[in-house]
Design a protein around this nucleic acid. Structure first.
Lengths: 219, 219
DNA sequence: TGTTCTCATTCGGTATACCGTTTTAGTATA
DNA sequence: TATACTAAAACGGTATACCGAATGAGAACA
């Protein structure tokens, strides 16, 4: 997907590693990310680290102080609400646009369902859940829509992971719920109209927005 | 070389200058943007240029070849359609969310209308038009929504500028049309419901999507 | 004439060095 | 003990240097 100078480079590798550490909670909110320290820890020089930090800032995982110092961002319940407003604005439209393509070939979605059924770990289910939505957005054919989604995805994964760690979200029952809901959406793509798909996606996202409890304040 | 101590971030300055050159058409589509050449032209070293190019890639003004070389992007009619799908998805929602804040204080929108009335140049009208929409999005209070919009805005301005240069878009009549339409939206914010604002914004964007002619092939 | 091979050049990725600013810790003073 | 001051360390922004890969032009050959 990324074809920038950062792709397949140390910058991207550094970003990937830092992203994983943040999303997994290994680097807690507020952690200072001094370029030199991170560079030494990752075994690269400061330039790739600098570029990785800029990338992660765009993804909302890192923020810079007015003097240019980077920290892992603090999460607030407001962030969750903002993210779901955007999901509600973008994903139903994406589902409608993707309907023709996915009616013709829904194999990628089917494969995702299979993988989700087999998933054992909570983080894996979360990632596959987001993959499912990303497949639909990619199938919409709107490259900018996909770009916007990707800039939200890490944050979403981070948030959901935080919920998992703080409460027992994504219990076995939740996985079943995800599977049932996604299965229904796939059925709509195969046999329904674009409007059906759009409506179903909207109610799917609304359901989770209501269901997910607010993140406990980390302070 | 020359060290300007107080100018905040040469990267930002380089991005601003390159953005202006691209949006204004000074740098035509397809132009190679070799780091060293740009750096020399702007009087800075390659590092800030590199960071600026990554920024502009995120904004859709620049693209990288698989080997990492940067060029000014090529515009296609498909881009216009993609942008307007996103405007339609995001802006009506933004208008609804911004309604309470703008009912309480619509002075920023009024000031924008005044400035638009006084505007003489086409590019100025375009910029103020986009400012108007950005004010509403900012008033929605959703920082991520604003972030996404900002990542689309340059491209939009570029596109509209291209239309201006290739055809006589934004004639005097078009300016009046913009003013009338924006005025109606401001009235809705002052006296209408959030749903009114949302509906009006949607039809405003739909109108322009239909009205704007397809970009002629730049070749 | 057209094609392929080769080699010099260009270009981007990364590391390192330097400089001015910010932060911080330690000390002195009230 | 609390506060203000000062100097050293840390840090980020930028410039420069080096290297390997990609590019392109020219020569050799079919």
């Amino acid at each position: 997907m990324r074809t920038s100078p950062l792709s397949s480079s140390l910058s991207e590798a550094a970003a990937t590693r830092l992203r994983a550490e943040i999303v997994s909670g290994e680097l807690p909110s507020g952690s200072r990310l001094a370029e030199a320290a991170v560079a030494q820890r990752l075994g690269v020089s400061r330039v790739p680290v600098r570029e990785a930090l800029v990338l992660l800032e765009r993804e909302g995982l890192v923020e810079f102080t007015p003097t240019g110092r980077a920290c892992v961002k603090e999460l607030s319940p407001r962030d969750f609400e903002e993210l779901y407003v955007l999901r509600l604005a973008l994903e139903p439209v994406a589902a409608r646009l993707a309907a023709p393509a996915l009616k013709a070939d829904s194999s990628s979605l089917m494969a995702n369902l299979q993988a989700t059924r087999r998933a054992k770990e909570l983080a894996e289910v979360t990632a596959l859940d987001l993959d499912f939505h990303q497949l639909i957005i990619a199938a919409s054919g709107n490259s900018r829509l996909l770009r916007l989604w990707c800039s939200l995805r890490s944050e979403l994964e981070w948030w959901l992971g935080g919920l998992q760690r703080s409460k027992q979200i994504y219990s076995h029952a939740t996985k079943s719920e995800t599977l049932a809901s996604h299965g229904e959406i796939v059925r709509a793509f195969r046999t329904g109209t674009p409007a059906d798909c759009e409506r179903l996606m909207r109610s799917h996202i609304l359901f989770w927005r209501e269901w997910l409890p607010p993140m406990p304040d980390p302070s």
